[in-house]
């Protein structure tokens, strides 16, 4: 089966910044993404679990986008403008998709 090269961008960010990030991505033309809750983890501020948090200030979410390689720079510029000053991780991996027209 024929596959097409794509980039998978995973942005782990504070839940409070989720809507700002997805709006920025949409404005940059990235309309396809998934948002996943993060149940816990450990980083520079120590370990945490979602069950032990109160309010949305401390929780994290992961925004995942799969895009064509040529659209990567626009996505990263839009994302960086939002996540620059905040806790979070942005990672990019190469992947392949079946239906290129959807990305």
């Amino acid at each position: 089966m024929k596959t097409h090269k794509a980039k998978r961008v995973e942005i782990t960010i504070e839940a409070i910044m989720q809507s700002r990030l997805t709006e920025a991505l949409t404005k940059a033309g990235v309309t396809g993404f998934s948002v996943l809750p993060v149940r816990g983890g450990s980083g520079r501020s120590g370990a945490w679990v979602r069950a032990g948090e109160i309010g949305r200030a401390s929780g994290m979410v992961q925004v995942i986008c799969i895009i064509r390689p040529e659209r990567l720079d626009a996505l990263l510029e839009a994302a960086f403008a939002v996540v620059d000053r905040h806790i979070g991780v942005v990672s990019i991996v190469d992947c392949e998709v079946l239906r290129a027209e959807r990305f």
Partner: peptide, 26 residues
Amino acid sequence: SYIAVPAAMRVALPEADPSIYLTLSL
């Protein structure tokens, strides 16, 4: 406060250390 203000501080002053204000308040 430990709900509304921490959320606002994470957006407006993300460089401030949340472990100080959340632990102190809560």
